[in-house]
Write a protein that binds this DNA or RNA. Structure first.
Lengths: 329, 329
DNA sequence: CTGAAAGCGCTTACAG
DNA sequence: CTGAAAGCGCTTACAG
């Protein structure tokens, strides 16, 4: 087992200086004669030399690594975003390092710090909460651009890309009201995430109609990322409030739990009044369930695009991009 | 906007040498008196100093970064593995950098090279094919341990963790044969991936019964990671061969496509003879579909465990770990 | 207990 | 066109 070869070994074999090796490997910044270049390339090939990106980063100040901090990558939506982020970054010569917070604020703060230590060139964050915190403020001092994805921290100086959660849930509740629902529930996955907050806000806005219809919607918050506590929470909810006549589930995990809960207890419930976020399988059900379809691909793609633009030029005004979601009924 | 502070600024503020700052920050290797230590800690706090992991890596030779190369992270199974990999690594003070190959051999080779450039301390690969190739051989020269996850390259010197694909598909086909199926199809997602090859091999083994039953199974290969070509491929298949009386779909994406194809053409098919890999939603269908449930969590967890062991001590014999999958009928 | 100094593998302004 | 040299921010064996 040999050791990885370095630039100086290549230089020796090619009988040139280490500087010349760099000029060849990097195509600049100096010209190299064709013969010399060929000698270097031969030596690179023979030694199977690969430049050390770490040493280069130290010198240039660019790691070509982007940090991605999300609650989890296991959920289908996050997985889609992580995938497109990764592919888009790769085609721009960047790597993604991914960290998950499991919806814990302390881990998020720690991860931001670690990303700074790793000298990431940029950071994508899907934050647990909506409060400003010091580690995020420090990013500016370190010249690390930040883009919020899927969720954001209001009034923080950064770009952000996410679903227009208020608009789509407003539309969803209007639809339910039109279907005759008067006593609804919106089941949320977090009490701190901006997306969860916005979704209930949208639900409330959806109640307001022109024709004086009186309807209400409660917010049931299940603080459990996996959705496994949703079943018990739902039962306890209907014990106090009775069975709602309209349901909005803000994640598909919660939707599945509630669906199973209804079935296991053989509770009759009209499926066309059951709206689940991101449930791609909803159309395969009999009958098909209404669902809200977010465009995760586009959220991820646009996030990377904004980040790359900002890594090149940090002077532009911050952008707040909404990606449209669809209510499929 | 200030610049990130360095160790020497901390040293100056604390009126000590840079070495002493290191001793404090790293808790060693030299003792530091309590008063000096406190001065340093105060300076670190005041300057909000974060050690530069890149500079440290260059010096120590350890990046504390693990590379993960997979076909995609968008599929639910890969997402689960990526998530547990990332969490397990984080709790051992490692970061994961993730790259996807989109089932392309050339991208896989390029990504291995790039991971070497990034000086990863270890590499997890879910390979596109089963052929040995040079970039993978080079890993040993660079002292980078390798673990195959979910798929492997036979006879390559490395640890590997995956589902026992032969065993579970054998069991699945035996079940189908017992249900009376005689003319089956196994729809695969790749002609090169070890997992796809093993799954069909298992199907063939499942045909052999003690009681002389004669049954056959064809292999339909849909080389399209997203499964969107599966519908057309399936129609063209049944045109030549007729409708099979038993179906094994080796990914849930393919399963969904075929299910939709059957429905769109209103083709009657007995759902209890339709087995889909990884289709967690199968039990929610009416009637529930049989499915094969892989333990992605355990595959990811065990992969990281083996990698970490090998990063500590590369002398152990290589391990080939099978994680059990379940046939739920 | 503390510090001066070498060196990790690169890049690049500068001199020739 | 080519090379000698400084320096990126760290670690650590060694001397005091």
């Amino acid at each position: 087992m040999s050791k990885r070869s370095t630039r100086s070994e290549v230089a020796k074999l090619a009988r040139v200086s280490v500087a010349t090796v760099s000029y060849v490997v990097n195509n600049g910044p100096q010209k190299v004669s064709p013969e010399t270049r060929q000698r270097v390339l031969d030596a690179v090939e023979e030694l199977r030399y690969r430049p050390d990106a770490i040493a280069r980063s130290l010198k240039t100040g660019h790691s070509h690594i982007v940090g991605v901090i999300v609650p989890t990558v296991a959920s289908p939506g996050m997985a889609m975003m992580a995938n497109i982020i990764q592919e888009t970054l790769a085609s721009n010569d960047y790597f993604a390092i991914i960290a998950s917070t499991r919806e814990r604020q302390d881990l998020e703060e720690k991860m931001v710090d670690l990303m700074v230590s790793q000298s990431v060139d940029g950071l994508i964050v899907c934050p647990v909460g909506i409060q400003h915190y010091q580690q995020l403020e420090d990013l500016a001092d370190n010249n690390i651009p930040l883009v919020f994805m899927d969720r954001h921290i209001p009034d923080f100086p950064a770009d952000r890309v996410m679903t227009d959660n208020v608009a789509v849930t407003k539309q969803a509740v209007r639809y339910l009201v039109k279907q005759g629902c008067r006593k609804m529930v919106c089941i949320s996955f977090s009490r701190t995430a901006s997306s969860a907050i916005d979704r209930f806000e949208g639900c409330l806005q959806g109640l307001q109609t022109d024709d004086g219809t009186v309807a209400e919607i409660k917010n049931l918050i299940v603080e459990d990322p996996t959705g496994s506590l949703a079943e018990a929470a739902f039962f306890s909810f209907i014990e106090s409030y009775g069975l709602p006549d309209g349901i909005v589930c803000t994640t598909q995990e919660i939707g599945i739990s509630v669906l199973k809960a209804l079935r296991s207890q053989k509770i009759a419930y009209p499926m066309q009044k059951f709206i689940i976020f991101d449930a791609d399988w909803a159309e395969m059900m009999m009958p098909p369930l209404p669902m809200i379809s977010q465009n995760f691909f586009e959220i991820g793609r646009k996030t990377v695009q904004l980040l790359i633009e900002r890594m090149k030029d940090s002077s532009n005004p911050f952008q707040f991009v909404h990606i449209e979601a669809n209510l499929n009924v």
